[in-house]
Amino acid sequence: MELRQLRYFVAIVDHGSLSRAALVLHVAQPALTQQLRQLEEELGVQLLHRSAQGVLSTDAGKIFYEHAQAILKQVADARSAVAQSAERPSGSVTLGLPHSISGALALPLLTAARAQYPEITLQLTEELTGNLSDQLKSGRVNLAVLFDDGQLAQFATTPLVEEELRFICRADATYAQGEQALTLAQTLKTTLILPGLQHGVRPRIESVARQAGLVLDQVIEINSIAILKSAILADMGATILPSAPVLDELERGAMHSHRIHSPSISRTVVLCASKNIPLTNAAAAVSRLVQQVSAQLCAGDTWPGATAIAGGTSS
């Protein structure tokens, strides 16, 4: 198996056509077809379905595509690491952010990166936390912001902030009329709209509730912040989230946020890197920048409900 075969295969999938991929790669289509056939023969599976309309990945092709992308990225990172200077880092860095964090962190981080490291191309990808963990393990992202659920031992981690979770509902909902704060037991009596068990805030809420002898009985699972917000505004239920993802709705009065007590709930936001794949100088610079920007946002009260964790160190 050769790197060019991986590049060819990824290009074919990305462009959905052998002919278009051949044009982009400046390779004759018969040669491209031959390399694809050799790759399929070596793997012993069909990677693509061919038709007059183009090509589609088989199930095996979809799996191989993810691995091919990760391998090609690691090769590019290795070349960049050799070439770049520690004093003037350059190259491409991919940082994964959960949906519930990107609203607070993404734009300030992009602005700071452009100002401090103009020769670094910072690529932000917004994903569910479970997906980000898998991408970090495979090397498809260099860094990822995740939540400490006790399952991060496989990564090098740096604590960033402690983020308060609050009960959030439509402004005119009857769940919490006149109440500034609610007990956790009170919040769990409502229909809650939450991500699935493997994503975001859900594991943390389940853990705190279990320790308090409580259970979540009425849950609507939605793994999209945009759809979750629409469901709240449709009065299908309330949620337990940090304030940052619904800040616009809170500021314009469409939603209300209530503190939770007895017990309160928070989550630890951490920056994660692979223990097996070394960081390039550019990725190390972005890692430091994420820590710096997070602390500045907390100090300026522009990351609602978040408190910087002083002296966070990688493990």
Rank of each mutant, 00 (worst) to 15 (best):
Q177I: 14
G178S: 13
G178E: 09
G178D: 13
E179A: 06
E179C: 11
Q180C: 07
Q180I: 08
A181D: 07
L182F: 02
L182T: 03
L184F: 00
L184R: 02
L184D: 00
A185Q: 15
A185K: 11
A185C: 10
Q186H: 14
T187P: 05
T187F: 03
T187Q: 06
K189A: 13
K189P: 03
T190S: 10
T191R: 06
T191E: 04
L192F: 00
I193V: 14
I193M: 05
L194E: 00
P195F: 01
G196H: 05
L197F: 08
L197E: 10
Q198D: 09
Q198W: 01
Q198P: 00
V201K: 00
R204H: 11
I205V: 15
S207N: 12
V208G: 01
V208T: 02
R210L: 06
Q211A: 11
Q211W: 00
A212Y: 00
G213Q: 06
G213L: 08
G213M: 07
L214S: 03
L214V: 03
V215Q: 11
V215S: 13
V215H: 04
L216G: 05
L216M: 11
L216S: 08
L216E: 11
D217G: 11
Q218S: 14
Q218M: 08
V219H: 00
V219T: 07
I220H: 09
E221N: 14
E221Y: 08
I222Y: 00
I222K: 04
N223Q: 14
S224E: 13
S224K: 12
I227P: 04
L228N: 08
S230D: 14
A231L: 06
L233H: 01
L233V: 09
G237Q: 01
G237T: 03
A238C: 15
A238E: 02
I240R: 01
L241R: 05
P242F: 01
A244N: 04
A244V: 05
P245H: 04
P245S: 09
L247N: 06
E249H: 08
L250D: 08
L250S: 10
E251T: 14
R252Y: 08
R252W: 07
R252F: 07
G253K: 10
G253P: 05
A254P: 04
A254E: 11
M255E: 01
M255S: 02
M255V: 15
M255N: 04
M255W: 01
H256T: 14
H256Y: 13
H256F: 10
H256Q: 15
S257M: 06
H258I: 15
I260M: 06
I260E: 00
S262Q: 07
S262D: 09
P263T: 07
P263R: 07
P263Q: 12
P263M: 10
P263L: 09
S264M: 05
S264D: 13
I265G: 01
I265A: 02
S266G: 08
R267M: 11
V269I: 15
V269C: 10
V269S: 03
V269R: 02
V270R: 00
C272R: 00
C272E: 02
A273W: 05
A273Q: 08
S274M: 12
S274A: 10
K275G: 13
K275A: 10
I277D: 04
I277A: 05
I277R: 03
P278I: 10
P278F: 01
T280L: 10
N281V: 07
A282S: 11
A282I: 05
A283H: 04
A283M: 03
A284P: 02
A285M: 04
V286H: 01
S287P: 05
R288M: 13
V290M: 10
V290H: 03
Q291E: 12
